[in-house]
Amino acid sequence: MLISVYVPFAVTALLTLLAPRLARGLSPRPAAWALACAALVTAVGWTGSLALLAFTGVAQIPQVAAEGHWSASALRAEDPVYLVVAAVSALVLTASVASLGVAAVRQVRLVVRARRECAALPGDTELAVLDDDTPVAFALPGSPGRIVVSQGMLRRLTDEERAALLAHERAHLRGRHHLFLALWRLAAAANPLLRPLAGTGAFVLERWADEEAATRVGDRPVVAHAVGRAALASTGAARPALAATGGEVPQRVRALLAPPPARRRMPFLVGALLLTMCCTSLANAASDSDRMVDTAERARCAELLISASTPPVGDHRHGPGFCRCPHHRGERESVAYR
């Protein structure tokens, strides 16, 4: 408990530093999956550790201890967690859960809106063309999802680049990339440290779709030119300012003009190792915490037996189940004696 409960924090911090650097150069499809696993595991590890730390603090409150039938003093004696740490954990946990809730509600609302718009698009073809000269192209998830492209975008691309654009958006829909985005977004809401990871994830998804388009079209430079020209055409178009996306398009174009990324194992192995550590540490901390409460329950049992000045029946090793019997009588006294 002493160390293991903090391991998920360390893993999160390490991944926050490493993942954005490593993931960009990797083969995008496995990288996206790895980032999704990382976000899920570290978000669970983060909240789990906070919950354990907060719990050890809350469990020492006499009223809570009385309710839970364990000895607050025994818990305090055994538990190495400072009360300040526990209090901060409780605060951060509350903030995390609240932020996650808000993000989840907004996410659901937006998905509902997107699906409604998707269903309202005219026609039943995969491609919906907007009669608009502003260059715009995106994939709109739904059942089935649609590719939305403006006439302005279509007219600015060559025949082959148009095919590349469609293949790119198709890859987003087929790969259900919006689910990845939702996962990263919610993970980052629960833990702001995961924001860089979420940003990297969004970039990796674009790379995934680029690579898939390159395979479909059979020509990497064509996809590079499609991305580059679409981006150049879109600048100056009335669009809301986007933050933190600087440099992404040139990176994509450069990656497409280079040979496909080599398959590398090492970063994935390191990531898997870190995530395994995160999981086992959390499980370890949870079982430690469980054992601690057990011990405190036994201590409470002993306290009760002494305070009720009943001659000891059996030894101290009775389980909590046995000790629960005389509780009603002993409860008030033991609290009063403290």
């Binding site: 939702a182 674009e206 398009v249």
Partner: peptide, 17 residues
Amino acid sequence: DREAVLTRFVSELSAQD
């Protein structure tokens, strides 16, 4: 929020980009 649902073909370019 739209970023979480819509995957756009290209993102905004800075002047340097």
